[in-house]
Amino acid sequence: MLFDRSFIILIPALVIAAYAQYKVSSTFNKYSKYRSKNGYTGAQVARMLLDYSGLNYVPIELIPGHLSDHYDPSKKVMRLSESVYYGNSVASIGVAAHETGHAIQHKEKYIPLIFRNSIVPVANFGSSASWILFILGFMFGIRGLVSIGIILFTAVVLFQIVTLPVELNASSRALKILDRRAILYNDELRGARKVLGAAAMTYVAAALTSIANLLRLIYISRERD
């Protein structure tokens, strides 16, 4: 079967994605057991760093879920999961600082973040509509729909690729400010760096998976021809 054969393209990316998920989960769990010397919680650290960066107007909200933490640029609000919000571990503080890094990027109009935010609507539409249009075009022999599906999915790939420098920069900002403000020390900083490094792997895996899917679409369309 044509679709089954093309799935081989995805296998390396899926293996990397599975490992990345394991790595981020195991690393976070490991450093969740290391209480920071200062004893600050993730919410306290986020508040301190936001205020220090002139973002005292950004509220911090508690949300459900595990590692569901994020900064919402549209509403200018930071949302932290329970384990990060209340946690006083190296892992919790690292994640909270990382999300603060995104808030600082937003304030400073960090270009990759602005670009990523600008293509969110297209990427969201592309992730849901690209395969539908592609399959319909493939089934009914409408080459135009196949091409539109590929173009729409290219926006998804672009979003995943531009996400990488955004996430890496947020982590870099987080580690620097944690060190500068003496919130974490030496071994603690190394632990936070490992947590954020593991998290970065998930974004690399997501980019590789989207690229593999795009190559799969192109392969299928050419096989059809």
Rank of each mutant, 00 (worst) to 15 (best):
M1D: 10
M1G: 14
D4G: 05
D4P: 00
R5T: 07
R5W: 06
L14G: 02
A20K: 09
V24L: 11
S25T: 14
S26C: 00
K30E: 14
R35I: 13
K37H: 08
N38S: 12
G39D: 00
Q44M: 03
V45N: 08
A46L: 11
L49R: 06
D51A: 15
I60T: 08
I60V: 14
E61M: 10
E61N: 15
H66N: 06
S68R: 12
D69K: 13
D69M: 13
P73S: 04
P73R: 07
V77H: 02
V77P: 01
M78T: 13
L80A: 10
E82V: 08
S83V: 07
S83C: 03
Y85N: 08
Y86C: 04
N88D: 15
V90A: 03
S92A: 15
A96N: 13
A97E: 10
G101N: 07
H102S: 11
H102P: 11
K107H: 10
K107I: 06
E108V: 06
Y110G: 09
I111N: 08
V122W: 02
V122G: 02
F125L: 14
M139S: 14
G141Q: 07
R143N: 07
G144S: 10
G144Q: 04
V146C: 02
S147Q: 05
S147T: 07
G149E: 02
I150P: 02
L152G: 03
L152I: 04
F153V: 01
A155C: 12
V156Q: 02
F159I: 02
T163W: 02
L164E: 06
K176T: 05
K176W: 05
D187A: 12
E188P: 11
A192D: 02
V195H: 06
G197Y: 01
A199L: 10
M201Q: 05
M201Y: 09
T202P: 04
T202L: 00
Y203M: 03
T209N: 08
L214C: 06
L214N: 05
R216K: 12
R216D: 01
E223D: 01
